[in-house]
Structure formats: structure tokens, C-alpha cells
């Protein structure tokens, strides 16, 4: 399983992946509990938690894709701008070119697929550094978004608006407002998509050959090759999956905001990387977990929520706390890596 790259199980009998996962979950639970204790009422409502999911469904999908690539030792910084491109293209297709919902979904996946094939080929088969390739991808998507349409606008396509305003109610989780009216808790369609993606990828990484190949290639590409794993193909698939997920995540984002704009999902790639890191994925590759990434996104958005409910409304506090949290988790990772180095000696 994921112990492929774990250190010897002598005294330290938890693998890196599990240790980092446990740290992430503990931090998230601790943070949420502290928020409930210190900030009270708002965080007690289940809807508050569901809102975090609603707002971050696309980020969850993007981060999952990012984790896949990071596990194989690569990186893809184009996902945020691909999201913006998907939003804009789908918006134009729906409102100006007379497309319907199904074609717009196909378009979103196709954009992801196109980016995946090009970037995957360049990274895996031409052996160009993933950072540079996806940097060019980021630039390209950014420029294309404004070439498709430069001005932001809201989509008024009826079927689409009906779909994006669909709310799935969760029984027994609702709350009563001040007048005593019952307000049911709800999630958006995007959350269902995100959870399906998380479950599918979790199974992929845990129980399939290609999933184990990801860990092996990221842990040590040379020995993976000696074991008979097709390293290039594995890397290609990881980048392909990441970009396709960026396409799907882009559509989920599109459903959440319901508009196209060049400034959509600005910096989402950095949030996705941060979530993956907080979730215990090492950028050196070989270590990571989709469940951890899921909790990474939740931790990141919980801390943002906490900061804004503390009354620190100035925009800079959010960024500074996120950066601080990233710093903290990086230091933890660094210590874990040292443990690994110590175990080898």
C-alpha cells in the first residue's frame, strides 16, 4: 500500500502518510472545536459546516488533482486559470452561442482534457520541468480567458440557473432561526461531485495498480523503473487526471458563482497547493493522501472563517493567517522528513 516509500518499521511504526494524515485531522478537529468554544453559536450550526463545503467544492476537486500530481513528484500550477477559462467558455457557450447544459459540461471536461494531454506529454515524454510547463499553461489559460471574452457577465440560461440553484436538503441537520422557523440544511450539487471525486480517488490510490504506481514513481522514479513500472506513462496519467479534475472543478466553480470572469479563481492554484500540503502531501513526492487533502481544504477554509468572525475584516489578515498556517505545516513536514532521514541511518 502506501508503505511503499515509508521508512523501516522499527521504532517508528506509523508511515509518513498516516502520520501526516493524523496531524491534519487532529488540527482540523481541534480548530473547529476551539471555534465552537470561543466563537460559539455560529459554528455550532451544521449549516456553517455545509457552507464551508458549498464554497469549497471546487477547491476540493482541484486540490485532489493537485495531490495526485504532487504524489508523483510533479506540480501543476495551471489549475486556477484553467478554472477561470472553463467558467468563461461555458458562460459564453450557454448565453451567447446557444449551447445547453450537457454540451457545456462536455466543453469543461474537454478543456481539462486538452490541457492534460499537452501538459502531460510535455512533462512525461519530453521531460520538461512540470513547473515551467504548467506555468506556461497558466499563462495560456489566463490569456485565452480574456480572448474568449474580456468582460465578466452573469449567465441567464434557464436550465443552468435551475441546476445551479438546486439545493439538496440534509434531513435532521437544519436549525431554527430567531422567529422559530425551521431552516433545512442544504448542500449544492457541486459538493456531491466533490465527495464522489474524493471517494473515487481514494479508492484509486489505495486499491489499484496505477494508484500504487503513483506513490512508487514519486518516492523514487529510478527504482520504480527498475521494478518495471512505466514511469513516463504514470506521470502522464497523473497530469492528465489533474487537468481533467481542473476542468470538472472549474465547472463546479462555475455552478457556484454562475458567471464568467477573467478574475475568477485567481490564486486558486496556490490554495490548492496549500491545501495539499496542509493535508500531508509532500512536494518531493511519494507521500500523500486524498482524505488528508480533503481535510486540508476544510482546515484552510475554517481558519479563514475564524479569522473573519474574529472581526479582523481587513483583507490582509486572511492571507497572513493562511501563510502562517502553511509555514507551520511545512515545518512539521520538514521534521517528519528528518525523522525519515534519521530512520535511514
Amino acid at each position: 500500500m502506501e508503505n511503499v516509500v515509508a521508512p523501516k518499521k522499527s521504532l517508528r511504526n506509523i508511515s509518513d502518510t498516516n502520520l501526516l494524515l493524523i496531524i491534519t485531522i487532529v488540527v482540523f478537529v481541534f480548530m473547529y472545536a476551539m471555534a465552537i468554544i470561543c466563537l460559539g453559536s455560529g459554528f455550532l450550526k451544521p449549516q456553517n459546516f455545509f457552507n464551508i463545503l458549498n464554497e469549497n467544492a471546487s477547491l476540493i476537486i482541484l486540490s485532489c488533482g493537485m495531490s495526485l500530481v504532487m504524489i508523483t513528484g510533479g506540480i501543476d500550477i495551471s489549475v486556477g486559470q484553467v478554472t477561470a477559462l472553463v467558467c468563461m467558455s461555458c458562460a459564453v457557450l450557454l448565453d451567447k452561442s446557444g449551447g445547453n447544459v450537457v454540451t457545456s459540461i462536455c466543453l469543461a471536461v474537454a478543456i481539462g482534457l486538452a490541457f492534460g494531454i499537452v501538459q502531460g506529454t510535455l512533462v512525461a515524454y519530453l521531460e520538461i520541468q512540470p513547473f515551467i510547463v504548467s506555468l506556461a499553461g497558466l499563462f495560456f489559460a489566463k490569456g485565452m480567458t480574456t480572448i474568449v471574452n474580456a468582460n465578466p457577465f452573469n449567465v441567464e440560461h434557464k436550465a443552468f440557473v435551475a441546476m445551479r440553484s438546486t439545493r439538496i436538503e440534509i434531513p435532521f441537520m437544519g436549525s431554527y432561526n430567531k422567529k422559530g422557523m425551521y431552516i433545512p440544511a442544504y448542500i449544492e450539487i457541486g459538493v456531491v461531485v466533490a465527495i464522489v471525486v474524493v471517494i473515487l480517488l481514494f479508492c484509486l490510490l489505495r486499491w489499484t495498480r496505477i494508484g500504487r504506481n503513483f506513490y512508487a514513481v514519486g518516492g523514487n522514479a529510478l527504482s520504480a523503473r527498475l521494478l518495471g513500472i512505466n514511469v513516463k506513462k504514470t506521470k502522464f496519467i497523473a497530469h492528465l487526471l489533474c487537468s481533467v479534475l481542473a476542468g470538472i472543478g472549474g465547472y463546479v466553480y462555475f455552478m457556484h458563482v454562475g458567471s464568467g470572469s477573467p478574475s475568477h479563481a485567481d490564486g486558486a492554484e496556490m490554495n490548492a497547493i496549500a491545501s495539499s500540503i496542509i493535508g500531508g502531501t509532500l512536494l518531493t513526492g511519494g507521500v500523500g493522501n486524498i482524505v488528508g487533502t480533503f481535510f486540508g481544504v476544510l482546515s484552510l477554509s475554517t481558519i479563514k472563517n475564524i479569522v473573519s468572525s474574529l472581526g479582523l475584516d481587513e483583507a490582509w489578515w486572511t492571507n497572513i493567517t493562511v501563510a502562517f498556517m502553511l509555514c507551520l505545516f511545512l515545518l512539521i513536514q520538514s521534521l517528519v522528513l528528518r525523522r525519515k532521514a534519521g530512520a535511514k541511518k
Binding site: 510535455l122 515524454y125 519530453l126 515551467i132 489566463k142 490569456g143 480574456t146 480572448i147 474580456a150
Partner: peptide, 23 residues
């Protein structure tokens, strides 16, 4: 347009990087 600039830059960069790739 200054906002569309990155797309063109990206194409040029990809061409250059592909040409300079060891493979």
C-alpha cells in the same frame, strides 16, 4: 490586449522550452 498577452507569451515559451528539451 494586455490581458490577452499571457496566452501569446505561453505559446512562445512552450516552443522555446520544447526546442531546448534534452529529448
Amino acid at each position: 490586449d494586455s490581458t490577452a498577452l499571457p496566452a501569446y507569451k505561453a505559446v512562445v515559451v512552450i516552443i522555446l522550452v520544447v526546442l531546448s528539451a534534452p529529448v
